[in-house]
Design a protein around this nucleic acid. Sequence first.
RNA 1: GGUGGAGUCGCGUAGUGGCCGAGCGCGCACGCCUCGAAAGCGUGUGACGGUGCAAGCCGUCCGUGGGUUCAAAUCCCACCUCCACCGCCA
Length: 420
Amino acid sequence: MIDLKALREDPEAFRRSQSARGEDTGAVDALLAADENRRAAVTRGDGLRAEQKAASQAVRGASAETRPALLTRAKELAGQVKAAEAEQVEAERALRAAHLGLPNLIEPGAPAGGEQDYVTLREVGTVPRLDFPPRDHLELGELLGAIDTERGAKVSGARFYFLTGVGALLQLGLLQLAIAQAVECGFIPVITPVLVSPKTMEGTGFLGAHAGEVYRLEADDLYLVGTSEVPLAAYRSEEVLDLSGGPLRYAGWSSCFRREAGSYGKDTRGIIRVHQFDKVEMFVYTDPADAHEEHLRLLAWEEQMLAKVELPYRVIDVAGGDLGSSAARKYDCEAWLPTQGTWRELTSTSNCTTYQARRLGTRFRDSQGRPQTCATLNGTLATTRWIVAILENHQQADGSVRVPAALRPYLGGREVLTPV
RNA sequence: GGUGGAGUCGCGUAGUGGCCGAGCGCGCACGCCUCGAAAGCGUGUGACGGUGCAAGCCGUCCGUGGGUUCAAAUCCCACCUCCACCGCCA
């Protein structure tokens, strides 16, 4: 939810933001109207309630003669209060609906436009020039005894897989490397629940645009999370945080579950797009004044991880129309995939400013000791998908794969993975 | 899964329809006292919304949501959470 006070002060900024997202600016005016309407309803209700309170007190102290008349008056007011409260509830419901409908205010500087309108900020590392026909990650994974999608399909269906042998070690090593880096940088490592209540899923906003992506367990009324951002955002909801020592940083390790509805026929080969994968996610609560700087720090930490596994990548500044409703700005790091001749997303970091925290009621005490809504940010530190890029970029002519130095300790010191 | 108990202002508690406009203790803040401190004494102590330049004023909040009543922390209904015991179990 956006800051209503900011909206009242500068509605034009929100209209510009809507345009940059390619969305309807009418939503801004609808929200303003709903806000105005609610304030009027509250003022009416407050007045009536005060009157009714006084009338009730009068009944109590009344003599036998005056009592019946006062009682009648009190009953009358009670009826009016009831009606006013019904109006107020309706006005608040309408405001909330409009409030939830308006996406976050885009950060100045973010590119306008849709999915194709991203701006490439930089390319880092060298795209490997292979003097042999490259094998794709699945072929390599099968040669190495690392990835088994056939049996994944047999056991669970399409888009499931087994990571075996060096594949399992590769994932565990990668994620441990990520956790180690995060801890070194002051993050609190967290293993989160992957099943969450409807309230949590709803509160974090993942039942909005992402609703079709989410697995639901009917019998127990629980949802499987698509990212640990969900439990980590809900983790400190309805709390007033102490941020006097700086941002509160969590690194969540969890399996992630996605239905991938509507992506039939897209990335069906291998483990680029799967129903279940593992991820280490950075999640930060901070003072909104510091959010922009923190966002750049998250991006830097992502790049640091990419450097450790020696992958060539580019950083893109995602355009407004491709942001998702809670992000004010988003940077993706995309690694080069030789067999696809294209860049594929490995990390994504979003600055949600106060949008997500306002909805979840997460606040902090400012320097005056007053509670204020904090800002939240998130960013990917490593995922199963990274294995795809690692295998493809570090492959050699004979089907072996060079292990980046940072991962060697997790693979028994091996410098090269060789076909089994 | 079953049975019983409990959820009150940061913490601990009091409170069984109007004197609760939520008391007391602890903690915390400020002041007095003191060379300084402790102790003691005094004052204050939350969140959200509305209104106001502001001091302030008004309203809401006793796990959550409904209901009864002129009036609800208190009565009724549903739900949630926690604790204990029993059963089952990685």
